[in-house]
Each structure stands twice: as C-alpha cells, then as structure tokens.
Design a protein around this nucleic acid. Structure first.
Lengths: 212, 212, 212, 212
DNA sequence: CAATAACCGAGACGGTACGTCGGGTCTTAAA
DNA sequence: TTTAAGACCCGACGTACCGTCTCGGTTATTG
C-alpha cells in the first residue's frame, strides 16, 4: 500500500480516493486470475477498476509494485491453528500455504515478482516487508508455541535461534513452493505428512546434537 | 534446443546454420546478464548474435522457450562429487547449486520462466525436461551412491522410493532457491552444513520409523 | 477580456481578484514568447501567474480565448502618425504593424488563433472584436485624414466606401502578414515604400476610374 | 512527400509500401475535413488509412509535416488560365485560389501550419517548397505572359524584377488569404474584380514611375 | 548444371502496451 | 463565492517490442 506518515497532517488539495485504492487492488487480482501476470496490463487494470491510468501511476511505480500489494493481503489469511501438536500445526499450515499457492492470482504472480526482484532492490524490500514477513511470522509463532508445549527446547542464544528460524522458514516455504510451482505436483495431505515428519525429526535430532 | 526428429531425414533446401544456434544462445545469456529477464528483447538478442529476427523465430516460438534453452545447459555443470560421505556430497551439491543460482543469467531467468510456466503447459514440460530433470538426476545419483555405501537403506517399494526422492528433491531445490532468491541471503558453507544436517538426520530417522 | 455585464450588480461572495487577471495575461504572453503557441499549456500559464488552474477556467473557456485576449492589447500600440502625407502615414503604419508581427508572442499566436477560428464562430467573433477591429480602425482613420487633406476624394456612397475600406484593409494587413509570416522575409523600409507606392497609385487611379 | 534520392539504389529489406503513403495522405485530408486541424490525431489518421501508427512516424516526423504534404498536392490544381488579358487572368486565379481556401481541409490547415512554422525552420522550408512555390509559380507565369502580350514592360534588372514579383505575390496571396480567413468574408467575383483593378492599375502606374 | 527449396540479412508492417502530458472538472480547506 | 492545491477521468502522445511479411540474395540437395 502506498505508505504515508501515520499521523497525516491533512495535505492541501483534494485527497486521494480510498475507494480507488481498493478498486484497483481488487481489479489487479481479478486481472491476474483472468489474464495471468504477463498479459496483465496497467491499462486493463485501470479500466476494470473504473479509474484512469494516471491514478494508478500516482500510487504505484509500476506493475511490479502494484501486484505485490495486490497479492500481499492474501497472505494475511494464513493462520497457525492450534491442533495440539507441532506436527499437526505444521502440517496444517503447509496445506494452507499450498492452497494459497494454488489460487490463480498467487500462482502466476508470486514467482514473477520474485524474478523481477532479483534486479530491483526496492522491489525486493517491498516483497520482504509485504509478503515474506507475513509468512515468517508463522514460523516464529509456531516455534514459540512448541517451546511452550515443551516440544522444542528453548534456544538461549538468540543469534543461533534466529538463524535456525530462517533455515526452517526457507525449508518449509521453499519446499512447498517448489513442489507446487516447479514440480507442479499436488501438495496433498500425504505429501504434507511426509514432509512434516522429515522436517520435525530432523529438527529434533539436529537440535539434540547441537546444530548451531 | 530446437527440437527436431532425432534421426533427421535430410530436408531439402539450405540447412540451418549451426553457428547461428550457438551464437543466439550465447547472446541470450549475455543479454540476461546485462539486461535481466524483463528487459531482454528478441531484437536485442538477434542483433547481439549478428542474426536476423526471423532466424530466431524459425527456431524458437518466443522468449520463454529461448531462455529456457539458453539457461538449461548451465545446469549440466552440476555434478555430484564423491567426497566419501553423503553429508559431504549433499553439502557440496548445495553449494554448487547456490553458486549457479548466484550467476546473474540464472538468477533473473529461472523464476521468470517458472512464473510463465504456470499458465503454459508446453513451457512447463520444456522446463521439466530441460532444467528440472538435470537437477533431479543428482538426487537419484546421490541416493544410489549412499545406498551402495550403506548410508541409506535400500527401499524395496519403488513407488515409495520415487515419492521420497521427489520429496527430497523439492526440499533441497526449494530450500536453496528460496534462500537465494526470496530471502536473498547468502547460501554459504555454514548454511549448507546446517541444512544438510537437518535434512539427513530427518531422512535417516524418518526412514527408520517408516515414513512412507 | 473576460466578458461580464457592463454594469455589474455586485455579486455575493468573494469578488474575483483583478490582479489575477493581469498576472494571467502577462504570464500568457511570457509563455508564448518562451514556448510558442503549441507548447503553451494552461497549467504552465497558471503556475507562472501564481494562480490555480481553476482560476483560469473561471475566466476563460480555454487556450484560444485566453491567448486572443492576451495578444489583443498589443494591437493598441498601433497608431496612425501624422507625417503630412498619406504615403508617409501608410508606410509608417506598415512598419509598425510589421514590427508588431515580429514580436514572438504575436508571431506565434496570431495565425494559430485564426486557424482555430475557422471552425469556431465564437472565436472568430472574439478575434474580430478584439484584434481585427483594432487594426481596421487605422484604415478608417487614415482615409478620413487623407480626405481632409484632399489626398483622397470623399466617397458619397457609404456602402461603396465601406467595401473599399474593407478591400484596402485586407490588402494591407494581408500583404504584411504574408510577407512576414508566410514568405518569412523582412518587412523593411524599402519593401514598405514599394508596397505603399503600389497601393496608393492603384487606389488613386482606380478611384478616378470608378472602381465601385 | 518523404524525399529520397531520385535514382534509388534498392535498399535492403522490405521496401516501403507506396499504397500506404497514398492511403495516409488521403486519410489525412479526410480527417481535416471531418475534424479540423486541432482535433486531428495521428492515431485517427492511421486507423482511417488502415495503417499502424509506426508507419506514419516512419515517414513523417509529426502532424505538421504530414499535413503540409497532404495539403500541398491540392495546390497543384491551381492553374493560370489564358483569358486574353492580364486582368482576366489574375481575376480568375484569385477566384481559383479563394475556392481552394474555402475547401475545409485547406481552410483549417493552412494557417495552422504557418503558425507552427514560425518556430520551426525545417517546417518553414517544407511549406516554402511544397506550398508557397506552387503558388508563386503562377505569378511568374502570369508576368511572363503579360510581358509577351505587351501588357507589362520587360524589367531588365533581374534583381528588381524578382523583388517586384515577390511583392506582387505577397499582395495577391496575402489579400486573398486575409479576406477569406481573417475577415472571413466571401471572395466573390466583385471583390476579385475590384482587387484586380487596384492591383493592376497600381502596378502599371508604379512601373512607369520607376518603382524599383 | 539447372531447378528447387529452404535458408539468410534487413527492415517495413499491423498491433498492443507503455509511461507521460495536457485538458478540463471536482473536491478539499482556507479566506 | 473565490482561492490554491492537487486528485480525478479522459484522450493523445511518441516509443518500444511483438511476431509476421516481403524483399534480394545465398547455399544446399535433387533432377
């Protein structure tokens, strides 16, 4: 979303239409579904949103930024359920995440903006803040809950703990994304179960051996 | 590579220039390095290769196919070294793969063509055959070697074995790609060691518990 | 000038700023000098005048009307000097008029608004009242003075007199404009002398032959 | 017309379509008639001509150049008739010229391109070569014929002759244009007769007095 | 050795989308 | 009601690439 200071001193002139923002993001998602990333055009989004092209460009620098914002909110739907065990929780989140990746707007857009971000650091930061952060939160939340349950030891060294969380995050997100988008095979309950088993046994054994 | 029948019945007329093929693929890689995926154009590739645009279109249907072929050969460089232990071998391959992903032509192109492939099944097959297969081969090779060494049990059920190999592949490839391109953090020796430890302990424990 | 009722019944609310009018017309002329007709924009004029765009549109319907008003006042500078003979007077006015046409704001604007007026009768009337009338006045004035001096006969038939004045006006104004703007050659003293000679001898001879 | 060397060494590549040239110029004239100069757009012309916008821009730098070329050919219709006397010939040409200026494509375009040419020397040259030259030819032709008939003396000094021809041209063209477009009054037979009388008597008297 | 056929370079072609600019209107808060 | 500011919708701009086509000309195999 176009970020402005939180406590906005009312600027002179006509204020920007909040309705336009919403309509544009909605139109962007609809266009992604119908056309896919590469056929989505700014003009099409504008016309679907009932808005002039200039209104888009006043808020977003281009297609990349617009799509990141349009897709990011979908990641708010991800939630860590409390099913009683870490394994069950992880498995559930994996399936949630896979379901999200199956949605046509996400599927076509996610890899595309990541690809663009390899040559655009501002875009990379935007993705990190808008999308990656929303996913990573689940890992931290899951670890904390597992530690409360006693399923995982409390790691005293925060640096090591952070590195491990990052590793776990890349393994989970990477495996699911790769399965869904590269291998293009279904992430079903069986796969999720086998993946979770692999991950958690590895995690527990490694932890007891001192994997820092 | 431009697919033609394996046993080519010599067609009438002037044959296609083999030199052009090589020059085009090389020019494509060079353009990826200089311009990145989204700014790469067919016209630019043609002019760098000293070739007419028609010559490109006679061989490849479009940018997607061209780039897949241009990038695919780079994956031939990946090799499974024999360092004496599965852990060492995996770690080495992870670093090799990461190094490949750090190359600018791969970094910018890989996610992009995957993104395109979500709406183009022919492209998906091309990627699977040209790129994914080249990576997967290492997993199968590694498992076989580990089984010969006795580091991993021989799985009698080939269906289960296949599923496990797929899982391992998605975990390895996914984690490395995600770390390198999404998290955009370095895949260094330390990360590779910690990742390998997690993977292999998980793999061995899960195997002994019957993770099929 | 923005036309309002001659006897203005004082309207309610804040009255319009008279200073704004002057600033806008001045800014319009400055923009004409710097940018020329086709690159002059309402936004540019507004910002030069330190005024909002709405203030312009409240007073003028558009660029055409604004420029006519901005340029019209320049034609007030034209004066018929009294140099003792009709020939001298005409020649002086021709040079004055040419000098006015050489000014960049006039040069670029005059033909442009005339061109626009060919498809806009309201604009045509505005030009006629604002610009053409200011020029024509000189012809009538010159004829009257010449008649007083006895250089020209008094035409009793007012209809014929009017037609002749119109003809003279089109010949003088047309020739000077064409020389200056179409042929793009200098209207210097020599040209003015030769033109005046042609005109006045023609006029006198034709008059004596009954050119009605 | 886009001028290229007369003896064209056949350039490589696909040659430009001559049909496109004709269609574009015709579409330009039609657009002038329907829309007028200021509402004519390159896109509209292209679509009327059944041609891509790039095809227009490959041949003409912009609207100005295009319209000059589209309108210029109309001036080929002007012809100096041989009616037996200079006065009759001049009067006929004046009426022809006025009829041309009454055509909607000419009326709306001519002053507009002249206005643009005041800030664009290349455009001025194009107008001079394409339009002005086509008109001036008639003056030279008329003088020569009148001299052959003995209606006008042969001017021995070519420099003076040239200057006089230029003057006559500006007077004729200027007066007719001014009457038709600025005064916006009809150039009918009566006006043409009175104008011709004024011009020719002036010309003859001035010539006998030594108007160089 | 001529005919044939596919190739090659160059570049024009009809399109689509780009990102920007200007026109003229509307919506704020302030005067 | 006017003002400055600036967002708004709209339409055109001139450019860049797309993928196709049409040239003149080249290089092979076949008759």
């Amino acid at each position: 979303m176009p970020s402005r200071p939180l406590t906005e001193p009312p600027r002179p002139g006509r204020p920007r239409s909040a309705a336009a923002d919403a309509a544009i993001l909605e139109a962007t998602r609809a266009s992604l579904v119908d056309l896919g990333w590469s056929k989505l055009t700014m003009g099409e989004v504008a016309s679907r949103a009932g808005v002039a092209k200039t209104t888009l460009y006043r808020r977003w620098a281009g297609k990349n930024e617009l799509v990141v914002d349009a897709v990011a909110v979908l990641f708010d739907e991800l939630e860590l359920p409390d099913l009683g065990s870490l394994a069950a929780d992880v498995q559930a989140v994996v399936l949630q995440f896979a379901a999200l990746l199956e949605r046509p707007e996400t599927k076509t857009a996610l890899m595309a903006v990541v690809a663009e971000s390899t040559r655009d650091t501002a875009l990379r930061d935007r993705i990190r803040n808008s999308i990656v952060a929303r996913q990573k939160r689940l890992v931290l939340q899951g670890r904390e809950r597992a530690q409360r349950r006693g399923e995982l030891p409390v790691e005293p060294d925060t640096a090591t703990a952070g590195r491990t969380a990052d590793l776990i995050f890349d393994v989970i997100a990477g495996a699911v994304v790769h399965r869904a988008l590269v291998s293009a095979e279904p992430v079903d309950a069986d796969w999720a179960r086998r993946f979770t088993l692999l991950l958690l046994t590895g995690l527990r054994s490694a932890a007891s051996h001192g994997g820092g």
